[in-house]
Simulated scan of single mutants.
Amino acid sequence: MRLKHLTAGLLALCATQVWADVEQSIRQSLDKLNFPMAVSAISETPVNGLYQIQLDNGRVLYGSADGKYLVQGALIAVNDGQPRNLTAEVEAKAIGEVINGIPREDLVIFAPEQPKTHITVFTDVDCGYCRKLHEEIGDLNELGIEVRYAAFPRAGVDSKTAEVMGSIWCADDRQAAMTRAKQGKSVTPVTCENPVAEQYQLGAQVGVQGTPAIFMANGTLVPGYKPAQALAQEAIANQ
């Protein structure tokens, strides 16, 4: 019995050392590349010898045990002819945690009294489809959807749009200022410490390439405008 316990202990110790070597090799490879995003976790995948590299922004890479090969792309599991995007599932969960971690006080929120779920929209006040979506804010609220706006001025943080969005976030009534801007009306210039630049950077990190970029509560991304009824159904299905 003691021999059995000793053998099991040695095997566990060996496995721990092997895993430590794998993690060290992968991290060293990324360090040599001056990889711009920090690694939050490294774990095994269903594919022998392939390891999942979870980045701080929620995105995923894959690497070989020796760290000599890195792969960017979707890992698809095929069971009985049914494809399942494992990469998308992992990324959505992690990105959802990042997006849902934005403090409420840093967002412009339009909420019903009893929301069924929420969406986070990276928006640009000069974007045509962002304005169209905002016209349906009332409909979304009536359907039980809380809309949380984050800033993503497409022209960059030094643009006139970013300046206007900064004034919105600094306004006494952010909702009214957002609505004025989305209607093409002027917004009173105000300056204060605001999260516009930080949210723009976060949006870029999680894969926002255009606006509106709509994230469901579970982290699933809907790129672009959808009518209120369809968007509400998708939001409820992806809580």
Rank of each mutant, 00 (worst) to 15 (best):
L6C: 05
A8M: 13
G9C: 06
A12S: 13
A12K: 15
L13I: 05
A15H: 04
V18F: 11
V18N: 05
D21I: 00
V22F: 09
V22I: 14
S25G: 10
P36V: 11
M37W: 06
M37K: 07
V39K: 10
A41Y: 09
E44A: 14
P46F: 11
N48H: 10
Y51P: 01
N57K: 07
Y62F: 13
K68P: 02
Y69F: 12
V71W: 02
A74D: 15
A74I: 13
L75P: 00
I76M: 14
A77L: 15
A77W: 03
D80R: 15
D80L: 10
P83C: 08
P83I: 02
N85T: 05
L86Y: 03
T87E: 08
A88N: 09
K93P: 06
A94K: 08
G96L: 07
E97S: 13
E105I: 00
D106A: 07
L107K: 09
E113T: 09
T117C: 08
H118W: 11
C127L: 12
Y129D: 11
Y129S: 13
Y129Q: 12
C130L: 05
E136C: 13
I137L: 15
D139S: 13
L143N: 06
G144L: 14
V147K: 01
R148Y: 12
Y149I: 10
P153N: 12
A155N: 14
E163V: 12
V164C: 12
M165F: 11
M165G: 07
M165C: 10
W169G: 00
A171K: 09
D173Y: 11
D173I: 07
T179P: 03
T179W: 10
G184T: 00
S186L: 11
S186F: 04
V187K: 01
T188G: 10
P189E: 10
V190D: 02
P195N: 01
V196R: 04
V196L: 10
Y200W: 13
Q205L: 11
Q205W: 06
V206W: 02
G207P: 03
I214A: 05
F215C: 01
M216W: 02
A217L: 06
N218I: 02
V222G: 04
K226L: 13
P227R: 00
A228S: 01
L231G: 04
L231C: 00
A235I: 11
